[in-house]
Design a protein around this nucleic acid. Structure first.
Length: 359
DNA sequence: CACTCGTGGCC
DNA sequence: TGGCCAAGAGT
């Protein structure tokens, strides 16, 4: 009789998983990409959401996810699109290599894998834009594979649970080891999502709600009253200020000159208002040397400020009028003013447009 | 391993 | 206001 079998002796990690899953069953967030209890998750939606959520908040991703899903309901539909359309739809979301990898991944899965995502960590890991975290997350959430899912939330939860003194990113291998030990064979996807929900709603960076935490009895940092000091982190380099110039060129019929940026590097593949290099020692006296064509430039009042991850940017905007007959220089093209909104313009470029149009 | 790569929100 | 943070990946 099965009933006569001795009950499984649970490790402390197993108890952790039970406490977490019970909490998740009561408090799970309802998210657009998340299957309801008992529903089978759609790997395409799981993958799409995971790519968008890389370093991006749930709130920001929401409308983008809905728009993408409506326009490209399946991986095959996305594979049939042009990269340019993906970039336009991604504009404003940031980290634009994600969009290019998204498109490349869709094409690979559609053409080479018959439209089906790999159902293992190793298979997923080979795809463009999918690293250690996303491979584990998709395997666990979409295919119920036991995989150690470690994102920023999980790092915070685990370093607090264990009061881990090793700073990030040095502690990453140890954290992955601990999470692997905690992850149950049963419901690994719910466990992963539960850990992330816990980090997002209870075990928050500041003022964690320890009183509501299912891990309260197990948490070493809380016991020592040091929970807010974890995770330890290596000090960050502070961001330098770079300067540059952008060139707003308008034809008499109201069309403006735009340019496609190189595929690699900052804002790769996106559309720009033709701009100079951005550098710490930028010489504003020679700014117009960077203009895409010769013209009578007037410097517009004010400047555009924009923060990137590793530097702060200040851009001066120069405006000029072009003849109707002016040909677009290399990599440039003319665009109607009222069609600028639909372009693959990153946020910093939209700020430049706003300044120019307001002048 | 250290660096590059966006953006918006929060206190 | 400025630093920090968010379901990291690629090189």
């Amino acid at each position: 009789m099965l009933n006569s079998v001795a009950p499984e002796v649970k490790s402390p990690e197993g108890l952790h998983a039970d406490a977490l899953l019970a909490w998740y069953d009561r408090h799970r967030r309802r998210l657009p990409w998340r299957a309801l209890p008992g529903e089978k998750p759609d790997p395409y939606r799981v993958w799409l959401s995971e790519i968008m959520l890389q370093q991006t908040t749930v709130k920001t991703v929401g409308p983008y996810f809905q728009a993408f899903l409506t326009r490209w309901p399946t991986v095959d539909a996305m594979a049939e699109s042009d990269e340019e359309d993906i970039l336009k739809a991604w504009a404003g979301l940031g980290y634009y290599s994600r969009a290019r990898n998204l498109h490349a991944c869709a094409r690979f899965v559609s053409a080479r894998l018959d439209g089906r995502f790999p159902d293992t960590v190793e298979g997923l890991r080979q795809l463009p834009g999918i690293g250690a975290y996303t491979a584990a997350a998709v395997a666990a959430i979409a295919f119920d594979r036991r995989a150690a899912v470690v994102d920023g939330n999980v790092e915070r939860v685990v370093t607090r649970l264990e009061a881990l003194e090793t700073p990030l990113p040095q502690a990453k291998p140890r954290i992955a080891e601990i999470v692997d030990g905690m992850t149950p064979a049963d419901r690994p996807g719910d466990f992963a999502q539960g850990m992330m929900d816990l980090g997002a709603t209870i075990c928050t960076p500041k003022r964690p709600a320890c009183g509501l935490c299912p891990y309260l009895p197990f948490c070493r940092a809380r016991r020592e009253g040091t929970q807010e000091t974890f995770p330890r982190k290596a000090p960050k380099a502070r961001r330098p200020l770079r300067r540059g110039a952008a060139f707003w060129i308008v034809r008499p019929d109201g069309w403006v000159l735009v340019r496609k940026r190189p595929d690699k590097g900052l804002l790769g593949g996106m559309t720009e208002i033709p701009s100079s290099v951005w550098s710490e020692d930028f010489d504003s006296g020679t700014a117009v040397n960077y203009a895409p064509l010769k013209a009578k430039w007037r410097k517009l009042p004010g400047e555009v400020s924009h923060g990137f991850t590793h530097f702060e940017l200040a851009v001066s905007v120069y405006a000029a009028d072009a003849l109707l007959s002016t040909k677009a220089p290399a990599d440039c093209r003319w665009v109607r003013l009222d069609e600028l909104d639909g372009e693959a313009l990153p946020t910093v470029m939209r700020k430049i447009v706003a300044l120019a149009r307001g002048s």
